[in-house]
Design a protein around this nucleic acid. Structure first.
Lengths: 282, 282
DNA sequence: GCTGAATTTTGGTCGTACCAACGTAGAAAT
DNA sequence: ATTTCTACGTTGGTACGACCAAAATTCAGC
């Protein structure tokens, strides 16, 4: 029996919470051109957001849902896809969708998919990167002014780890990110760490394509050290300045990679397809 | 006639751009558990982002698409829903989906749907608001250091308009937003104005529920004036400080509204169904 | 008890069918 | 000839049934 296992905790709730929209009459267009899948979507979305569907649990099977709500499988599937698109479900082909209550991370993540396309040209990456420098510089300033002792201890520790990783690409990158991350946690607002993860994610591609040598790592590390010292010295202007300089240096490396890749894939549409040729069959 | 109207310009392109994934073999699961709708989605997404599908134009009919790509209607529909979820299409029941190339605004907008749920409690609003204060304070500092003459002229003009609107709720709010908006445009990075619109959007609900009197408007205006003067005087610290103080004052008003509204919540649908009754069956 | 084969369930896709809302085109009326 | 009305085709929304292959589950055999 699979009674209490992969059935979520919605055996009861669902049954009665079924919106009238989904149960009224035969099955034609539900009132006012509202899609059945939209109604179901709203319903499930609401359940997820209210915590009635536990995060991490799989959704009931599609066939179960269609029985439960009296809709066709098409509707169920479209609903699921819609929810997934909104970040309320994680789907992977062949598996049950998993409930994914959104937090700041999920929110940023959903932008990510769009931002991804904005970061295909240098212009887009530059805009994003610039905003990052701006924010992070402010965070550095804030840190210099407000960091607690344990914040500084954490910063120092991660700085050390970064030092030790010089020359070891993967680890250096990780410790690099980890160091910067402290800056985002100091204000103790969950929004910032989420933003940081988002930045790292968005800029990962161009970032990871930059050259890496022990010398370059050392330059980067030196930047971190400078930032750290300025914060320890409680010098906001210097902290900001150091961080700006550090990230701008990094940007130079990133930018240099664009001179290469910026070949075929221009910004607008040089478009590989030579001409639309409106004449074809049809 | 409907010849060149609601057919987009993709008669030619589509035909040849069809990815092999969608054409190979009979029709079982396309390689590696990849959903056909995902493949189609990527394909269309790419076309939209590359401008091959013109923004504002309707997509071809579903039946047309299924013929074109050799997939079933289910796949086409699921693709469309997926694209809509990503903000690449605007759909309204009964009408053809409309191409909607995303920009920073659209990106932020897609987060909005998720953020909306995070702003239902004071905690969430506070986090968001705090991040706004932080960013805007930095922008004020930046403005004090780098604003051009015409930036300052613009700022002054909007400050005046704001002054004139004291006491006239709707107009005051608009000019208020307009004033702040200048700060976001000064760095000349399209990301910031988008962020501002997003903030305004997210915080609109709690914001618009605050009390409004001529006196309060005057306090707000005074805040704007202080910020403006600090920027004109090229005093970054004062500019930042003024802005912080200004927004924190506003926050006090916002916060006071939570003591009231924190009743039923009433985000989406006041919903006829009174309560989910978390204790039923199972 | 644990591994592996047999079986059931489930997601992915297809195809067909029906409804209601439009829009078009042709027929009918002015 | 212009307008009006009606029949028909198209389109999006939904339902149902059928397959396949990959999971999940069960069961047999070691």
């Amino acid at each position: 029996m699979l009674d209490g296992r992969n059935r979520l905790n919605l055996d009861g709730q669902l049954a009665e919470a079924v919106p009238e929209e989904l149960t009224d009459g035969p099955s034609p267009l539900n009132r006012a051109g509202r899609r059945a899948s939209d109604a179901l979507l709203d319903h499930l979305a609401s359940m997820i957001l209210r915590g009635e569907l536990i995060t991490g649990n799989p959704l009931p099977s599609e066939r179960e849902l269609m029985k439960r709500y009296g809709v066709s499988r098409s509707v169920v599937r479209e609903t699921i896809i819609g929810l997934a698109g909104r970040g309320l479900l994680k789907t992977s082909p062949g598996f049950r969708p998993v409930v994914n209550k959104p937090d700041y991370d999920a929110a940023l993540d959903s932008v990510g998919r769009l931002v991804a396309h904005l970061t295909t040209d240098e212009e887009g990456v530059k805009n994003i990167f610039e905003s990052r420098v701006f924010l992070e510089a402010s965070l550095a300033r804030w840190a210099a002014l407000n960091a607690r002792k344990d914040d500084i201890r954490e910063l120092e520790e991660r700085l050390l780890r970064n030092r030790e990783a010089v020359g070891v690409r993967r680890i250096f990158e990780a410790t690099d990110v980890a160091f910067h991350d402290v800056l985002y946690t100091i204000p103790r607002n969950p929004v910032y760490p989420a933003i940081h993860r988002a930045y790292v994610d968005w800029l990962r591609k161009p970032w990871s394509s930059i050259e890496r040598t022990a010398e370059i790592d050392l330059v980067m590390y030196a930047g971190h050290e400078g930032i750290f010292k300025a914060i320890v010295d409680r010098d906001p202007d210097l902290a900001e300045e150091s961080l700006r300089r550090h990230l701008n240096t990094a940007w130079e490396f990133v930018r240099s990679t664009f001179d290469f890749q910026a070949r075929a894939g221009g910004t607008a549409r040089p478009s590989v397809s030579p001409s639309p040729e409106p004449a074809s069959g049809q």
